[in-house]
Design a protein around this nucleic acid. Structure first.
Length: 592
RNA sequence: GGAGACGUAGUUCAGUCGGUUAGAACGCCGGCCUGUCACGCCGGAGGUCGCGAGUUCGAGUCUCGUCGUCUCCGCCA
């Protein structure tokens, strides 16, 4: 017989009754009745109840075994009597009566329980991650991650994509996030950088004649973390295709996303062809370029209605070029005064001077501002917003961009407070038509608003003949439930158009050539039109697993301060190592 | 770099208006228990209330500082 096991702990069924088996695993839970001991034995595959009878020579030893110790037992599979069957267990129809017992590995007393999902400090979980990962929820998340990456590979290969490896040691690039640097031993004072994304490599692969690229690509950025952004490293489903239009790419990605969510989650996908929202519309309707469209609630522009309103906070804004925007909260008129006060307090905390509101109750408009409005204004407001009896209206007034931003936050908060977003659904959308350029508010300079390598809509003609601020780019974002999963673009593969775009943004030809020598050179040897996208794998898995924090779907994450508490990274190194790398450490004064 | 929340037993938490010996559950240790499946019952150990100042007759509780963790802003093409 195998030294450790003939079956896993999730395998045995009623049909196995009468066979002699060997199981190994962790003591998940122990129930000691004095005369008989039950052990729920756990491995990666499941739980099996092991019974130890009092006449067993190892009975006393089993009485002492602690949870999470590793044991091996041999025994007969016995069908449970009808009244002792456990329907909640896959193996609940049987149990294994132990005839031999071996303690393989002792477990010390635990820093937190493994057999229940009790909250405990994340610091403890991270410093004992190997225990944390034994727990059902984390174990499941890591398996889900594996299933997701496997499905991505399977699907994309079926679709004709090819997976490539691109360098991890590459060169530092001038734009973008802070790089992680790796000192060069052979070239004193020179550094490699870890890739922030394989952006240039995948474009070079397209120029190399490969047609459909993908990679589950590790990306490294030395920026501070967030709940949905791990410090240091993360993964993208990096994709690039040649000879495609924006529509081709959208269709391709919709197939992938729909399949992921259909096969790996129980959530309902609101629309399998994702709605497209122009960037400018998104800002006017939702006040953000990553709207949660699980609930509708668009802002209505009521600027013209309040031009001559008695309410000076509104009419003064309209006269000084500002905007008045309204949100309709369906059915919220009956909310308590505290609800409206809380919403106003929230708006103030986000920088608003106030948050006017109206409640449509008993066929009247009620609220602090109602008495300042004429019947005509009320009528126009009802028509503009589509508000009905029982709804509540919230208003923001001020400079247009700031008001959109603020009311976008109010919209999001209303969504939370009124539970407007169904938790079991996913609503994707595309944000399209990003502007190619924008004005830097500090300097007044025209700058690239996103990726400088996106193709401007209208090409050279648009760059030459339009106001730069009116030029749109083939640049798009995919958004799901208010989370930005990725940006992408149809790339600019034409050196002449590239030079023109950089010229508008104030960069001389030399900058393009020196900062992006690889692409610049490659595009002079016959570059195919191409484009791509790179959805964040970690965020997709967060959505699939319904986890609010990205660390919950990563086996060994860095903590918020970018430390690995288990391995002790980052750490200092031997002086000899530094010497070899020609590095001298100069500590900031406060750490000495 | 900035802001906020939190910090009490191994873990999750309670701790009244500032009041005398800081509690509960789970876990741990010991004892009892032959059908449980979050087994049950009895007993025990376990605390620098993050740390340091201050106010006070008296501080887990109030004030200030500091450290730690998380969240947000900045940052993330």
């Amino acid at each position: 017989m195998h030294p450790y096991r003939t079956h896993t702990c999730g395998a045995l069924r009623k049909e196995d009754t009468g066979t002699t088996v060997k199981l190994s695993g962790w003591v998940h839970r122990k129930r000691d009745h004095g005369g008989v001991i039950f052990i729920d034995l756990r491995d990666h595959y499941g739980l099996t109840q092991v019974v130890v009878n009092p006449d067993a020579p190892f009975f006393a030893e089993v009485e002492k075994v602690r949870n999470e110790s590793v044991i091996t037992v041999e025994g007969e599979v016995v069908a449970r009597t009808e009244d002792t069957v456990n329907p909640n267990m896959d193996t609940g129809a049987i149990e294994v009566v132990a005839s031999s017992y071996l303690l393989e590995s002792v477990c010390d007393s635990l820093p937190f329980p493994v057999n229940q999902e009790l909250d405990c400090p994340e610091e403890t979980r991270l410093s004992h991650r190997f225990l944390d990962l034994r727990r059902e929820r984390m174990h499941g998340n890591i398996l889900l991650r594996s299933r997701a990456t496997a499905l991505v590979r399977q699907h994309l290969v079926e679709r004709g994509f090819v997976e490539y490896h691109t360098p991890i040691l590459t060169s530092s690039s001038p734009e973008g996030a802070r790089d992680y640097l790796v000192p060069s031993r052979l070239y004193p004072g020179h550094f490699y950088a870890l890739p922030q994304a394989p952006q240039q490599f995948k474009q070079l692969l397209m120029v190399s004649g490969f047609d459909k690229y993908f990679q589950i690509a590790p990306c490294f950025r030395d920026e501070d973390s967030r709940a949905d952004r791990s410090p240091g490293e993360f993964y993208q489903i990096d994709m690039e295709m040649s000879y495609i239009t924006q529509d081709d790419l959208f269709a391709e990605l919709e197939m992938l996303m729909v399949r992921l969510f259909k096969e790996l989650s129980k959530k309902r996908i609101v629309a399998e062809v994702f709605p497209r929202i122009a960037y400018r519309d998104a800002m006017e309707w939702y006040g953000t370029d990553k709207p949660d469209i699980r609930f509708d609630m668009k802002m209505a522009d009521c600027t013209d209605i309040f031009q001559d309103c008695e309410l000076k906070v509104f009419s003064n804004q309209t006269k000084s070029g500002g905007a008045v925007k309204a949100l309709t909260a369906k059915g919220a008129a009956g909310q308590s005064r505290k609800f409206f006060d809380d919403m106003e307090r929230y708006a103030r905390s986000e920088g608003a001077k106030g948050l006017a509101w109206l409640a449509l109750r008993e066929n009247e408009m009620k609220g602090p501002i109602a008495k300042f409005m004429s019947d005509g204004e009320k009528q126009a407001l009802m028509e503009r917003t589509g508000a009905e009896e029982g709804d509540a209206l919230f208003f923001g007034a001020g400079p247009r961009a700031a008001t959109n931003d603020l009311m976008g936050k109010v919209r999001q908060m209303l969504g939370i407070k009124l539970a407007l977003a169904p938790p079991d659904t996913v609503a994707f959308c595309w944000i399209v038509d990003f502007p190619m350029f924008e004005t830097n508010p500090d300097t007044g300079q025209t700058e690239f608003s996103h990726n400088p390598f996106s193709m401007p809509q209208g090409g050279m003609d648009a760059l030459t003949n339009k106001d730069p601020l009116d030029v749109l780019a083939y640049q798009y974002d995919i958004v799901c439930n208010g989370i930005e999963l990725s940006s992408g673009a149809i790339r600019n593969h034409r050196p002449d158009i590239m030079l023109k775009a950089f010229e508008i943004a104030g960069y001389p030809e030399e900058t393009v050539k020196s900062n992006f020598p690889a692409l610049w050179k490659a595009f002079h040897y016959g570059a195919p039109p191409h484009g791509g996208i790179a959805p964040g794998l970690d965020r997709i898995i967060m959505l699939l697993a319904d986890e609010p924090n990205i660390r919950e779907i990563i086996a060994f994450p860095l903590n918020q301060r970018a430390q690995d508490l288990l391995m002790g990274a980052p750490n200092t190194v031997e002086p000899r190592q530094l010497e070899e790398l020609h590095i001298e450490v100069k500590l900031p004064p406060e750490t000495e």
